[in-house]
């Protein structure tokens, strides 16, 4: 049975392994399973980037209407990801620092790092520079939901905070407490 790639309605190109039923079963052999997990992580990250999805929950394995259904389910071969399997993959992602638990101290949902916080920091700074907002004080809301859609639209606040933290270390951003919450001021590069 030759396995082929498949393009989803959202325009995502699924890998050929996604149409192999064993891909959806957790393999008892640790070596085999580690390969499978690797492929899954790659698939999740790629798809998250494609759809700009940030949060992955264990419940997404069960729900047919979830944002992740295109990769977690394969109607063509009648297979879906089992919650237990997904849970193990999420643990593996967190271990590899490709995701963090969000909210922390639980393991049912993760924040997927389809860009690493460092990458996000660069993206954020570029956007601020490009949009000429250096030295102005901005609220988080202005970043996550700008008038003109950007790469940062809908970025979860914890991730944003992390990216700002990284910029702050290099002196390019400064957290400011304002009346109704928090704000940030971006500074020009010191060097």
């Amino acid at each position: 049975m030759a396995l082929t790639t498949h393009t989803t309605p959202s325009g995502f190109l699924l890998p050929s392994i996604h149409s192999a039923p064993p891909f959806f079963t957790e393999q008892p052999n640790p070596t085999t399973q580690s390969i499978a997990t690797e492929q899954w992580i790659r698939l999740i990250l790629t798809y998250a980037r494609h759809r700009k999805l940030f949060i992955l929950r264990v419940e997404d394995a069960e729900a047919a209407e979830s944002d992740w259904a295109e990769i977690l389910r394969n109607e063509r071969i009648n297979r879906k990801m089992t919650p237990g399997h997904l849970c193990n993959i999420m643990v593996a992602m967190a271990d590899k620092n490709l995701a963090i638990y969000e909210p922390p101290k639980q393991k049912r949902s993760i924040l997927v790092y389809w860009r690493l916080p460092e990458e996000w920091a660069e993206v954020l700074y570029e956007w601020v520079v490009d949009s000429g907002q250096l030295n102005t004080i901005m609220t988080f809301y202005e970043i996550t939901d700008p008038l003109v859609e950007s790469a940062l639209t809908n970025i979860p606040v914890p991730l944003l905070r992390k990216a700002i933290g990284i910029l702050g270390k290099t002196g390019r951003a400064q957290m400011i407490a304002i009346a109704d919450g928090e704000g940030v001021r971006f500074l020009a590069k010191s060097k």
Binding site: A20, P21, P22, T25, Q27, N78, R79, T82
Partner: peptide, 14 residues
Amino acid sequence: QDGGVCRDDSGAAI
């Protein structure tokens, strides 16, 4: 165990 085969469990069926 040797990684020669892999399994497809119908427990993962939709």
